[in-house]
Design a protein around this nucleic acid. Structure first.
Lengths: 198, 198
DNA sequence: AAAATTTCTTAACCTAGTTCATTCTGAAAA
DNA sequence: TTTTCAGAATGAACTAGGTTAAGAAATTTT
């Protein structure tokens, strides 16, 4: 429960003074979360920005038919929130759930706003964080509209190597936008082509 | 060639003082662009943030086979840039091209940086702009991984009503991620189902 | 206003990916 | 050690969407 990881994370984007770090960390809350526990459910307002210190969360949408689509995996060192719901304080249509027992830091909107007001440097930190997230998402859109399922899977393997052998295949399929059955086929093909040494 | 539109655009996110507006506008450059003219080509570094005052641009990717995929339409009142290339000053893999004769405001990275440094309020403006863009893009990802081609088209009609009867169908198809032939089918189906009054 | 080019439509055929049903596997309970 | 249960694999039948090609319509250019 120390701040090391989260400070390292935000310092990536901008040098921060002691005072800034102290102010920010004093506003954080630490939470342990059980597997399957929800941090956000459709209909709620997203009240916190969440930083994952350990474990893995997912941000997902659930269709009328009960079909789930994963918008974001959030393993260690990732931020997750429904940004629209958080800033506008409107009900979300998404869910955030722990896929593993996890530990997170959270900051509420009032506390984050206070941080922005008293230490404007954080506007820049969060601007740059948004830019990175945007660029990543844009690459994903390009894949989604242009690539085959196999290409999308290979891109996933490249982008989230730490998750490939950690998440059930059904979750990965739900992130890529294909059925688990088809992902199974793809994987078989790939391993057949590569040839598994005895 | 006055600043009305662009000032209105950025003021949406935050109240700006006279001084801030003056500083910012003094850094802007106005350009008229012919149809088909490129503002950015793969291999170049994206040197400007571009605001569209009139006309319409597109940000797109061109695959090896020559197939184009549109990441963003930028009609009046939109901003467009390859954000990654712009901030990192690395070569882009994207193109920005005018789909119509257009008129734009541009700001270079040095000028935008100067703006951030002397008037930190602009960090907030651009953070909020990024957030909006991110939210929109996240909705698009959800559609891309979950919806049928018809649903994607109907969402496009809802999101860009001003473009539906203004852009060639082939561009719309390239944004949605389907072939123009199939979009033709979808449109026929829709108009048949709706029944066109004599 | 003719020529040239781009865009749209249609239709026959093709395939990547889905659906559904069944079996298999392995880890956790008990 | 057996039972349970979620996840993974397999395969057959199906369908959304792609491909190709050719002609018709619309726009741009001259």
């Amino acid at each position: 429960m120390n701040h090391e990881q989260i400070i390292k994370n935000i310092s990536r984007w901008m040098a921060l003074s002691e005072a800034e770090i102290d102010f920010f960390t004093s506003r954080l809350t630490y939470r342990k979360i059980r597997r399957r526990q929800y941090l956000l459910q459709a209909g709620d307002v997203c009240r916190h920005y969440t930083f994952v210190n350990e474990g893995c969360l997912r941000l997902f949408h659930m269709g009328v038919n009960g079909v789930e689509h994963i918008l974001q995996f959030a393993p260690e060192d990732y931020w997750v929130a429904d940004i629209g719901s958080f800033y506008e304080e409107v009900p979300t249509s998404l869910h955030i759930e722990a896929l593993e027992p996890s530990e997170v830091w959270q900051i509420s909107k009032p506390d984050l706003t206070a941080t922005f007001v008293t230490h404007p440097g954080f506007d820049r930190v969060f601007r740059v964080m948004m830019e990175r997230a945007f660029i990543k998402l844009q690459k994903r859109v390009l894949l989604d509209i242009s690539a085959t399922a196999e290409e999308k899977y290979l891109a996933f393997v490249e982008n989230y190597p730490q998750l490939v052998n950690r998440m059930p295949q059904t979750q990965i399929a739900s992130f890529i936008g294909i059925t688990p059955e088809f992902l199974s086929k793809i994987r078989k093909n790939l391993s057949r082509r590569k040839g598994l040494p005895s």
